[in-house]
Design a protein around this nucleic acid. Sequence first.
DNA 1: TCTTGTTAGATTGTCGACAATCTGATTGTC
DNA 2: GACAATCAGATTGTCGACAATCTAACAAGA
Lengths: 230, 230
Amino acid sequence: MAKVDFSPIADTTRRAEIVALLRRAILTGQLEPGQKLNEIRISEQMRVSRAPLREAMRELVQEGILTSIPYAGTFVVDVTAKDIDDAYSLNKVLDEFAIERTWPLRDQRFFDELDQRHEAVKQATRNRDTTRQIETALQLHGLIYEWADNSVLLETWQRLTSRLQMYFALHQQARNEAVPAEDVHETYVSLLKGADMRAAQRHAREHIDLDFEELLSYARNLEQRPSKGD
Amino acid sequence: MAKVDFSPIADTTRRAEIVALLRRAILTGQLEPGQKLNEIRISEQMRVSRAPLREAMRELVQEGILTSIPYAGTFVVDVTAKDIDDAYSLNKVLDEFAIERTWPLRDQRFFDELDQRHEAVKQATRNRDTTRQIETALQLHGLIYEWADNSVLLETWQRLTSRLQMYFALHQQARNEAVPAEDVHETYVSLLKGADMRAAQRHAREHIDLDFEELLSYARNLEQRPSKGD
DNA sequence: TCTTGTTAGATTGTCGACAATCTGATTGTC
DNA sequence: GACAATCAGATTGTCGACAATCTAACAAGA
């Protein structure tokens, strides 16, 4: 038998595709926080019945990026500054843990993947593709979670990121100035390749410090904004 | 106007009730890991159509206690020894964080609630109600998460617990010996009331150590067991 | 004017039926 | 007997229609 690593075949249900479509729309900011999702309209636009759409929505509710009020509707979550602050402080703890677990498991494949994802961020930055820049930056950051060999930790991280990605996207969208072209991940990557674990942990803290601080000030300004209706 | 704190009225959809029913059945071990959930049979038993049942199932899939394979079925998750180990090690980290955050927020209401939950565990123990004993013990442990004032942390803990509760229940069910009558939470509670935060953190680690070690050895024995069909 | 009751429209929740897919048994062929 | 093709039954996925509920506008009464 040939030694081929067959990846799992794609999900073939409408539901799965709807989930992907909706998630993308939310995480890129096409659907704004607080906005209501009208089932009939969306199902007509997607040429799908309401059943799979509703099931998809239930998934995203549990994923934490939608919230549902019985007989009232399903809405994009309205993340508060406190939510971001909470996620941020938890992220610090998880980062330390992830680095600690990943540390002894680092190998050539890890370093290669690290470089590859770093390259993806740099390319997105060059192309001024802000959405992709956020996406790739989070993927770069997520490598330590994927490598830590702890499924529960990884799952936790993924739930955390989706909401963060959404808010980073809105943030970028709001300040329509050019994104910093310099490479802020250089130190992070090289530290992960180095020998000083404590230094890497320390830097990871300060690294996300920067991103979050800006995000937080943005969120605090939005706090008194009225929520978007339908 | 009278000063009454009205709590939110109960969810009135069938879906919500189905979720509660299924969750309870899984977490108490009535539905075994690996078991398949036949939609038609369950919907007939509950006198409900498949639509709300399926939506409920999608929620529980995202909650991590069910897994779904398209066109094959939805099954109770088959937790491995590694999953428990992963959850266990993450729990250590989260416990430390939760205690740290809760520490400055402790007040009389916290201590009262602590005693109340502790009492609930002791009562369940006296009554030899193992299911309730697990439930109350986890609720006691969960207080530091509820009090930490961090919604993301709390959410993470709740996801973690549901799977743990399920496995603790199966474990208790398997070894049909009497549950230890002595009170293992006495020290934990008194440390949370004390002044030494580090000591409380240290004990929380060792405390869950005990529970998990036994659970792990049980899970490792089960590892080669064939998965339950329908 | 303010409050309360009513009602029409829109939207969500639920249902029963049909389509797509899978599984296992059966048949046919070598 | 081993293997592939076929087929029937069961189960999941999807659909369109109906029931339950909410919202907002309007009317009636204090």
